[in-house]
């Protein structure tokens, strides 16, 4: 694991876009971000996964200079965030978790007015807005009001807005939460294209498909701290194995069997989840000898890692 990470860093042997060292954020007596350290390198898509309240948004707000850090060090583009907020912000694109498009303006005006905040000339703003509306397939709605847009269109517009200043780093806070599958896939498609062009991306999410699909590396956070860091596939192999066997209504003899073989498993009462390397032989055995209600085998996913590490209790 350690070795893999070192290799990765050598591969990228460039100075990080984001360098967080022992970063801590405390609100009153609540530690929202607890001594976390991570680096994001140029051109990579770095994921921050975690349940609600894990501290993802708090971390992001420190990265774009909105929220002063309580302790630790944070550099973006090699510059200290506290001293260089304006310079850093002019090179960032940020998509907030809440929709904060300007409802007093049309789609096109949203982009044009926003580019003026970056001191772009009105002419450059118009050109940039038009090209981004095309990229996000919003051209036909350019004169619409924000309230007339669907959730997916709003998200695409937020994304377009974050790209106005041709940022070197794109920060996305739960970009697809609440979207229908079609819209979600469209956003992923666009993000994939941006990534292919070499844009560095920091993305927070609790959608595991999203993370597995987009992220080169990720951290899983909970209660303000980092639980693990790694590449999606490595994390899956390392923490849950390759295959998952799920048995509905498991009986006592299966439980005894699993315990006797010392297999990695989770017992949810009505469901038993067994994680294993290559599960084919084991699945046949369980299917023949122990399965009454139903059992399936599937590939292990990031979601299994996530649930294993962060538990199954509800948050908030």
């Amino acid at each position: 694991m350690k070795v893999a990470q070192e290799n990765h860093r050598e591969e990228l042997s460039m100075s990080p876009v984001i360098e967080a060292k022992n970063l801590t954020k405390i609100f009153g007596d609540l530690t929202a971000v607890d001594n976390i350290s991570f680096n994001v390198y140029p051109g990579e898509c770095f994921g921050m996964l975690g349940p609600n309240g894990a501290g993802k948004t708090s971390t992001i707000r420190m990265i774009y200079g909105l929220s002063p850090i309580t302790r630790g060090a944070l550099a973006v583009f090699g510059l200290d965030i506290a001293q260089n907020t304006r310079a850093i912000k002019s090179r960032l694109g940020v998509c907030h978790q809440d929709n904060n498009l300007d409802p007093d303006l049309t789609v096109k005006e949203n982009l044009e007015v926003f580019s003026r905040y970056f001191n772009m000339s009105p002419a450059a703003a118009r050109v940039q807005a038009e090209s981004l509306l095309r990229f996000m397939a919003l051209e036909h709605r350019k004169d619409a009001r924000i309230t007339e847009l669907s959730g997916g269109m709003m998200r695409r517009l937020v994304l377009a807005r974050a790209l106005l200043n041709a940022p070197e780093l794109l920060i996305l806070d739960e970009p697809t939460t609440g979207l229908d599958p079609q819209s979600r896939h469209q956003v992923w498609e666009r993000l994939g294209e941006l990534k292919a062009k070499g844009l560095s991306i920091l993305i927070s999410t609790h959608n595991m498909d999203e993370a597995a699909r987009l992220c080169d590396r990720l951290i899983i956070m909970d209660h303000g701290g980092i639980l693990v860091e790694g590449k999606p596939l490595e994390l899956i192999n390392q923490h849950v194995g390759h295959d998952i066997i799920e048995v509905l209504e498991p009986n006592q003899s299966l439980r005894a069997f699993v315990r006797a073989r010392n297999m990695e498993h989770e017992d949810l009462g009505h469901r038993l989840i067994i994680s294993t390397g290559d599960g084919n032989a084991l699945f046949r055995e369980i299917n023949n000898d122990y399965c009454k209600e139903g059992c399936i085998m599937r590939m292990a996913t990031l979601e299994d890692v996530f649930l294993k590490l962060t538990g199954r209790e509800l948050r908030e």
Partner: peptide, 14 residues
């Protein structure tokens, strides 16, 4: 309600 200031604060505006 509109979170306009939040959006602005992610730009070079202070």
């Amino acid at each position: 309600y509109q979170k306009t200031f939040d959006a602005m604060m992610a730009t070079p505006l202070t």
